[in-house]
Design a protein around this nucleic acid. Structure first.
Lengths: 150, 150
DNA sequence: TTCATTGCAAAGCGTTTGCAGTCAC
DNA sequence: GTGACTGCAAACGCTTTGCAATGAA
């Protein structure tokens, strides 16, 4: 399991590299460093968090570059963006995950991922009814753990 | 249909009034004026838009009060809040509407409302699987109109 | 060499806060 | 009368922008 991670790092670097080529963007070390750090994380993160862990590792990196690079990573679907209610944008790596949705526990802030195939059927219906092509969806449930009182 | 609107205005004022009582909040004219303006709108709006239309109608109202009052209206479920991707919060009146979800056309910015009962089943399953009680959900589809080429 | 990209700092902008004046109770 | 509420302006915090320096092609 553990060495999947470094294999994956190689794979996503490759994907990003091809994307940058195709758009004639430069392959700067900063861009790949950021990609690496993101794929090293196992949780959702915001820009400030990413900035702080990269500073801690003595990278010379600016918030501006983080925002720019994340933008590119969104474009090539290596990262997903979330707006969990507040004004701070949250992100997560997305390449090896299946598309999934989120259950947010409002008391603890915990975020649980789930995937329900029935959502796909709803999507299909909406596409037919309104004659649209849906590129993306976002579904969040907000709730609380039920405590058993024994 | 038209005079439903003023009947509704009375009804929501009543609801808001009861809510303010129950929380020992004061019934200021500003709060009711804001409620009225919101229930006069038929679209989604943001604070800046609400501010501008109230200014245009010569209300003496501040953004601070708009934010404060909206907060109260959210609490008593007379208004719903949305975060359609960007950092600007959007709102809509919610008292007479059935709970519904949104399809956002990314090219035109148009927002279409829909309601699919199957979502309820998904919710039920998630509640059972994770042993949670879900208070709220948000579902957005993002897509584009399909053009017929005849 | 050239100009896309970078780091840094300043500016933007939606939202929140502080405060003196006001008015619902 | 009193303290919750208001308008105003300043502060906040995330994000974007401007710009001189840098380095990928």
């Amino acid at each position: 399991m553990k060495n999947n991670k470094s294999e994956n790092q190689l794979l996503v670097r490759e994907v990003f590299s091809k994307f940058l080529d195709s758009k004639s963007h430069r392959k700067t070390p900063e861009r790949f460093a950021i990609l690496n750090e993101i794929y090293d994380l196992d949780e959702h993160f915001d820009i400030e968090f990413l900035f702080s862990i990269m500073k801690k590792k003595n990278y010379r990196v600016s918030r501006a570059t983080l925002y720019n690079t994340i933008e590119l990573l969104l474009e090539c679907h290596l990262v997903r963006k979330h707006q969990f209610g507040s004004n701070i944008a949250h992100y997560e790596k997305s390449y090896f995950d299946r598309q999934h949705d989120h259950l947010i526990l409002t008391d603890t802030g915990e975020v649980i991922e789930f995937c329900d195939p029935r959502l796909h059927n709803i999507k299909k219906s909406i596409e037919e009814i309104f004659n649209v092509s849906i590129e993306k969806h976002s579904l969040y449930f907000y709730g609380k753990k039920i405590k058993n009182e024994n």
